[in-house]
Amino acid sequence: MSTILKIQDLVKYYSTGETVVKAVDHTSIEIERGRFTAIVGRSGSGKSTLLHLIGGLERPDSGKVFIDGTDIFSLKSDKLAQFRRRKIGFIFQDYNLIPSLTVWENVVLPLGLDHRRVNEAQITDILEKIGISDKKNSLPSTLSGGQKQRTAIARALAVEPTIILADEPTGNLDSQTELEVMSLLKTCVNEYGQTLIMITHDQTIAQMADRTLLITDGAINE
């Protein structure tokens, strides 16, 4: 299998007054295409920062991140945004849906931003698979937590990204919904052949992954 993600000596420190927090400390990893990788660690261990760096949401102090062979931090702001909308799908713990957009509009937003015409059949298919096709005209405020997260998953899948980054996607869900969302994610990843990198502090979920990475004080241990 080919390498989809390559991280080289990545560093991100935060300075809070006199204390320096080593969120990501000289980390290097490689992740293969089509694999489900879980990053686990305690709260404050730097796992979210690592995920944001991988997604280009934050810039590192040093080090490089290659996605599909592209050094994402060599890209200028607009190019990085374009790269992100084509290659990366995000799923956040608190869903981060746009409240003024309907479920459908939230899902097709990255496509619209990329000036791509919407393949209605494909999006309908995703919504049906995810089980929210009847909610496509609903606004996020009327959805349950599970439905919101399903919408966020659909949005991540819609652009057919090379890599999906999920930041504790089940953190706000009850255990029943958590299992449903996880199995849905896994099924979709398998079906669409996508790479999933998920942050979690839940060992049960981590066990569902093909590979688990432990992050402690910003450093990765397999």
Partner: peptide
């Protein structure tokens, strides 16, 4: 937020 909670979606954004 719309009071109705639903509205016709725009196909393309």
């Amino acid at each position: 937020i719309s009071h109705r909670g639903r509205r016709r979606s725009h196909t393309d954004i």
